[in-house]
Simulated assay, not measured.
Amino acid sequence: METETLYDAAGGTVGLTRLAHAWHERVMADEVVAHAFHHGFRPDHSERLAAYWVEALGGPRAYTGTYGDETSVVRLHAGEGEHEDMDQRAIACFDQALADTGLAGDPRLAGALHDYFAWATTMSMAKYPRSADDVPDGLDIPQWTWDGLKESR
């Protein structure tokens, strides 16, 4: 049984913060993905994203209680219609960010993180393309393990 979480294997909060910054730099340089930020973004976007990943990947509850819950995150991404090309480019930027931060050096870790990000991008965050009003209240941040999506905790 795996005892080390993805959070631990990725370098904890420091490692995931580095990854969030690297991903944000990559997406802002991509003319298609950067469109998602055309309305602007918070100056602490990378820190908030890292806190979300910390919690989703087995670390402490760094996002919930400080910034919001899954409902608030999904509502931010809802109502934008379907955007498969942008999603695939965001995933490619994530894979490049894994390389930028040295996390791609461990193929098992890189694969698990890629699978998480691809799932979150194409499933969890894309689940409500029509309207943010469709997102139910009280959603918990999904937990991702070495084996994939974990049932609710």
Rank of each mutant, 00 (worst) to 15 (best):
C93D: 15
C93E: 08
P107H: 09
V32T: 14
M28F: 01
D137G: 02
F41L: 13
E80N: 06
H77A: 07
R61Q: 11
R75G: 02
P129K: 14
L149W: 08
A120T: 10
A110Q: 09
S72K: 04
K150E: 15
A92P: 02
R48Q: 13
V135L: 05
S72A: 02
A36D: 12
W146K: 10
P60I: 04
A126F: 06
S124E: 15
L19Y: 03
W23R: 01
D8E: 00
K127A: 14
T121Q: 14
R61I: 03
T145R: 13
M86A: 04
T66E: 15
T71E: 02
R18F: 05
H45S: 00
G11M: 06
G68Q: 06
Q88M: 05
A22F: 08
R18E: 12
G12E: 01
R18N: 14
D134C: 04
A20I: 01
E80S: 01
D30P: 01
D137F: 00
E82H: 11
S131Y: 05
D133E: 15
G102F: 06
A110W: 04
T101A: 03
A110P: 02
E47K: 03
F117A: 10
G58D: 09
R18K: 12
A90C: 03
S46R: 02
W23H: 08
T5M: 00
R26E: 12
T121E: 14
T5Y: 05
D44K: 08
A9T: 01
C93N: 13
T13N: 07
R26Q: 14
T64W: 08
M123C: 15
H77Q: 08
R89K: 07
D69M: 09
T13H: 13
L76K: 12
K150F: 09
G12T: 02
L113T: 01
D95S: 09
E31A: 13
L19V: 01
G79R: 03
G68N: 03
R18G: 13
A120Q: 12
L16I: 06
L6S: 11
V27K: 12
R89W: 04
W146S: 11
A34S: 13
D44E: 12
D69N: 12
A36R: 13
M86C: 05
L6I: 10
A78V: 07
T17K: 06
L16H: 07
L149D: 02
A22K: 03
H24E: 13
G102W: 00
R42W: 01
I91E: 10
A36N: 13
D140T: 15
H35P: 02
G105W: 05
T101C: 07
A29L: 09
A90T: 04
M86L: 07
H38V: 10
H24G: 08
L76H: 11
V27H: 10
M28G: 06
A104I: 03
H38S: 15
Q88Y: 00
A62S: 05
T71I: 00
D30H: 00
G15P: 06
G68R: 01
Y63R: 05
W53S: 06
A20H: 04
G138I: 12
E82M: 10
